[in-house]
Design a protein around this nucleic acid. Structure first.
Length: 128
RNA sequence: GCGGAAGGCCGGACGGCCGCUUGGGUCCACCCCGAGAGGAAAGUCCGGACUCGCCGAAGCAGCGGUGCCGGGUAACGCCCGGGCAGGGCAACCUGACGGAAAGCGCCACAGAAAUGAAACCGCCCCGGCCUGUCCGGGGUAAGGGUGAAACGGUGGGGUAAGAGCCCACCGGGGGGCUGGCAACAGCCCCCGCAUGGCAAGCCCCACCGGGAGCAAUGCCAAAUAGGGACCUCGCGUGCGCCUGAUCCUUUGCGGGAUAUCGGCACAGGGCGGCUUCGGCCCGAGAGGUCCGGGUUGGCAGCUAGAGCCAUCCGGCAACGGAUGGCGCAGAGGAAUGGUCGUCUGAGGGGGCAACCCCGACAACAGAAUCCGGCUUACAGGCCUUCCGCGCGC
RNA sequence: GCGGGUAUGGUGAAAAGGUAUCACGUCAGAUUCCCAUUCUGUAGUUACGGGUUCGAUUCCCGUUACCCGCU
């Protein structure tokens, strides 16, 4: 966790998108217990962290074996990562954790623009 | 032209923009220049490389594997060539393909009998008297029936009935010669010839193999309490040597003592299932197993390798050799992506047709230490060689 | 990633290479005025595909699914 946050400022991309990466099982579990917003292409879970925890926007991705074989899982994860990179730095809120969970068949094949719409809608629901 | 057989290859192409990982340039940042999934990256079924204070080597025992012969290879359970057997008109395909008179074991049910064979019915002969759908003794494996399998097969002779009892052919066994490195094949001679099947049952023979695995292993940092339990072996020798402590003596140098401490030595002990040799360690402690506690960070291993591509030479081939060229992913909760455009396009739709429209979501699938194989998955396409049938010349 | 194991009615387990068995459960029937108890019956491609064998749940090979260990 600390490594992910310390690594982020060194990373060139982090200057644009200060997104931390979730890697701890505990973080995923805490996000799952907080707010959730299902939509067509994926499931969004989000949580506002306590003051003592890390800063900035953090994001995690989950594609279980249900999504498919390794090719399908990786493809779904990459598309989720892409929409997160495009949208979260501007529309996400600092101090929040977001977890995007892939769905079988849909996440890998849905129109990319529709996926982006889904994320916008899900973020509004989670924040509001 | 139709239907097949074998071998090999490809697995959309190019570009723009925005990203990711990584190498280099740059003092740093910005930025610039490169590189970035597969034939199976898969299954983890074999074989290696590499690592290990799991002691080493040889032998024995044990365990596991392989199994026609020859060759290839670092090695293999892989590949190539050959033999034999089975299948196919053929091209060609398939085969765990050593040993069953070394031994042990099993062969259910059925059947008389399931293996150092055997007489239920039947057939034939002899004897008896109650002369019969009878009883007793013997001969007989041709016939019946059972079974997955019944002790050579078919035909003829022969006989009381039969029988390798005799003969011919086929099959089998033994020996010799020839060809071949060999597996094996061919020919000749001899033997009328009881000697099932299963070794992917134990086993025998030959050959091979120690174990664990890159989450191996090494280093750095951080953190905790270096804590507990159990097991195995040992705790010996002494006028040995040193004189370093110590003690006695001397003003001191020096000399002496060896009870005690220390060092050295020896005996002894430990390190594989056993033995031998070697090595290492201990020498009064050593080694091992387990529990408990802390960490879940970083670096190395980590990508130049039995490497790839051409050409030539040797070889039927697998493959080997020589010369020249190439630089070819290295992540680490894990990069190799997103999107747009142009082209090609199997296919789909429309039309009598020319042609038009749609069309990259058209396969299986994502490196994780690295190689050689095997196996499994795979849309569609291309190339080469060969076989059968049909037609033409 | 590396290594190991398992698969048998709905569930949990047995089974020398020779008819797949046991317990609980399900459903149906009998018993009872009704229920419970009791009794009788019921259903398996032995995970899947090949091979060895006369014959495979068992032996061998491949595939699939699930489970476990190792930092």
């Amino acid at each position: 966790m600390t490594s992910a946050l310390q690594a982020a400022p060194e990373c060139s991309a982090a200057a644009f998108a200060p997104l931390g990466i979730l890697s701890k099982r505990a973080d995923f579990l805490r996000a799952a217990r907080a707010r959730r917003a299902p939509c067509e292409g994926f499931l969004l879970q989000a949580r506002q962290r306590g003051a003592s925890e890390a800063e900035g926007i953090r994001v995690g991705f989950t594609c279980s074996k249900k999504v498919g074989n390794a090719v399908a899982r990786n493809r779904a994860k990459r598309r989720l990562r892409e929409i997160a990179r495009m949208i979260l730095p501007r529309h996400g809120k600092p101090g929040w954790d977001y977890v995007l969970i892939g769905r079988p068949h849909v996440t890998a094949t849905r129109e990319f623009a529709a996926l982006q719409q889904d994320l916008h809608r899900a973020l509004r629901k989670v924040h509001g």
